[in-house]
Nucleic acid binder design. Structure first.
Lengths: 124, 124
DNA sequence: TCAAGTGTACTACGAATACTAGTACACTTG
DNA sequence: CAAGTGTACTAGTATTCGTAGTACACTTGA
């Protein structure tokens, strides 16, 4: 179901995240169905369970799956709707980036501020 | 006029950038006045000229100064106005980050896309 | 109850990246 | 043309990132 390319420059955990995103958004993985366990998938791909864990953590933070301690990870129910709204945000981001460049805001300055705003929001 | 803190975790060139930003925005350095040369400032701070150069490059990209080959770097005239507009962009960014987090978009995903949009715009 | 399954936290090591320095080159001015 | 300026290239060190190793905590069913 999942395959990784060790030649690829992209980190393994990132490749896994993207493939699961596609599977979930396209409905191949149905809501509330169980994800492969970190160990079984790690065994299947011949990599470390912690790498799967890192991918799952990312998927969780992005709302694609939810974890249940001692039981496993499961596909989130509202992943589809959420994705629509996310796409809207991405369009706005693209537009904002365009204006930023015109104003001479560097890519680094832009992303650094975004990170800071993310951190500030976490505290609340 | 400029001081650096080697204990600080922030890179030296970044410290320099921030201090000059403040000086320029507050009008301490007047438009079209000459910046310290990369060598003289490097000598004064006992660091490498290339580090100053990196700071100046960043300031140039953000529109705070402009370079003249063989003559030096000078304070940009419209730094004040440009900054007002930049602050507007930053407010929008903060708002967009807030909505992104609610939608479960990770900080990494957000910044990675921003960088991609930056790169895409460069080609044109 | 407990064994086998699950996720999670901590540390560690190698690779990749970032920061700074060294050196050399090109342009401007008096 | 000499002394000042910015700029490009390379290189070494420090920091960060990705992955693996190990150990711990929770859930379930026999």
């Amino acid at each position: 179901m999942i395959g990784i390319d060790l030649q690829n420059r992209k980190p393994i955990y990132e490749q896994i995240v993207e493939q699961f995103q596609t599977l979930i958004v396209n409905g191949v993985l149905e809501p509330d169905s169980q994800m492969p366990s970190v160990r079984s998938l790690a065994m299947e791909l011949s990599i470390n369970p912690n790498t799967i864990q890192k991918a799952y953590s990312a998927l969780e933070q992005e709302g694609y799956i939810y974890p249940v301690k001692g039981r496993g990870n499961f596909v989130s129910g509202n992943a589809g709707l959420r994705l629509k709204k996310q796409e809207g945000v991405y369009r706005e981001l693209r537009e904002l980036v365009g204006r930023s460049r015109e104003l001479g805001i560097s890519c680094e300055e832009f992303t650094e501020r975004a990170e800071r705003y993310y951190r500030e929001g976490q505290k609340e």
